[in-house]
Write a protein that binds this DNA or RNA. Structure first.
Length: 197
DNA sequence: GTCAAGATTAGT
DNA sequence: CTAATCTTGACG
């Protein structure tokens, strides 16, 4: 039994949504196939007060989705070649989002292998840019409404058996608080969590 | 208009 | 450790 996550689910703070997304299923419909991964790692970005967030300096053309209603996709291009997927959370205008950092591939693994150009299931979706490549997520899905249940959405899943661990976010800049806050959430011992830095 | 930096990844 | 690759936003 699983259901599409609602606007109300996403409308809570990023700090609440990020851990709750662990164990949920990210679903992508692509070329008539369904690609599914279990979310095993997330990071919360907590609005304009978060020095590590793209929302830190207020709304811009790039981050405008972050300041829109919850439950939409905020996608950005990094290093000129990779995309990363966030889900917008919190009250409209807050600029909060949760970065999806890693998935455990469940369905459509062959297509993921082909899209990623590699064979090891372990390396298919164990990073924010890797999972976007595996699931065919790019600019075209910028601002996509994840509550519609088509093209790209998230469903509830079985409660994770693994304990949830927290720690500092990966690769972020900013003030001391931004760098130290334990706003990364992941499932203990799960082999699909992104490699340690 | 110019320019440096980037919530990463793969390869040496 | 470093190259790859290009958009964004800060600055003037």
């Amino acid at each position: 039994m699983s259901s599409i996550l609602s606007r109300e689910f996403y409308a809570r703070t990023a700090l609440e949504v990020a851990p709750d997304l662990l164990g949920c299923l990210l679903v992508r419909e692509l070329d008539g196939e369904r690609l599914v991964g279990r979310i095993v790692e997330t990071e919360a970005y907590y609005g304009e007060e978060d020095a590590a967030s793209h929302a830190f300096r207020g709304p811009t053309e790039r981050n405008r989705a972050m300041f829109g209603p919850a439950g939409h996709a905020y996608i950005y291009l990094i290093y000129g070649m990779y995309y990363c997927l966030n889900v917008v959370t919190g009250e409209e205008g807050r600029g909060e989002a949760v970065l999806i950092r890693a998935l455990e591939p469940l369905q459509g693994i062959e297509m993921m292998k082909q899209r990623r150009g590699r064979d090891k299931v372990r390396e298919l979706t164990n990073g924010p840019a890797k999972l976007c490549q595996a699931l065919g997520i790019d600019r075209r899905l910028y601002g996509h409404d994840l509550t519609l249940g088509r093209v790209l959405w998230i469903e509830s899943g079985p409660r994770p058996h693994e304990p949830i661990l927290t720690g500092p976010r990966v690769g972020v800049r900013g003030d001391e608080h931004a760098r130290n806050a334990a706003w990364r959430f992941y499932l203990q011992h799960n082999p699909f969590v992104s490699p340690a830095r």
